[in-house]
């Protein structure tokens, strides 16, 4: 192949990469992807910065609450993945609760598959909790999400929580 052809091919690859960027930003990031993390969010100078958090607790039969390590409970090595996983769990819990209201839809294949997947998830979580706390018997998981504030000007972290949301997942 002539050099000129290779240069044309090179330009074509560049165009393809731009289309790929366009799709990733305005539709959905494909995989494989060459789009690097952008960290595009910004905070104003001397602003009050909002810091989100996402904690998981295990509740035992005595209603005692234990703060648990998300990575260990869900058997995942990276925290960034765990946070996304919790988003999916919340969505599926919502779907189950929504479909429960309509018995017809509750018997659909889609929801039966989700319920089967939930059973596997519960058995994995229980196994991991058993390994972490051998003497405890847990009955549910509680996901608490919320936001806290940090003052960049005063360099102070405020402990009050706002926009708090809770998701309870029964393990029995």
């Amino acid at each position: 192949m002539k050099k000129k052809r290779y240069v044309q091919l090179y330009i074509l690859v560049a165009l393809f990469l731009f289309v790929h960027l366009f799709i990733a930003k305005f539709y959905s990031e494909p995989y494989p992807s060459l789009v690097f993390p952008s960290f595009s969010k910004i905070g104003k100078r001397h602003d009050i910065i909002v810091v989100p958090f996402q904690n998981v607790y295990a509740i035992d039969k005595m209603h005692d609450t234990f703060f648990v390590n998300k990575k260990k409970v869900f058997s995942i090595s990276k925290l960034v993945h765990v946070n996304k996983m919790i988003e999916t769990v919340k969505l599926k819990e919502y779907l189950i609760s929504k479909y429960k209201e309509d018995i017809k839809q509750y018997k659909s294949k889609k929801i039966i598959d989700i319920l089967n997947d939930k059973q596997l998830f519960i058995s994995l979580t229980k196994k991991n909790l058993q390994r972490l706390y051998p003497n405890k018997s847990f009955v549910s998981l509680l996901i608490i999400e919320g936001k806290r504030k940090y003052s960049a000007k005063k360099q102070e972290f405020y402990n009050e929580v706002f926009d708090e949301r809770k998701t309870l997942i029964k393990l029995i």
Binding site: P30, E87, V89, F121
Partner: peptide, 17 residues
């Protein structure tokens, strides 16, 4: 380490295998 146990978390990118 991946298996069916993680199906409840399954949420793949829309444009992926």
């Amino acid at each position: 380490w991946l298996s069916n146990y993680f199906n409840y978390f399954f949420s793949p990118p829309k444009l992926s295998i």
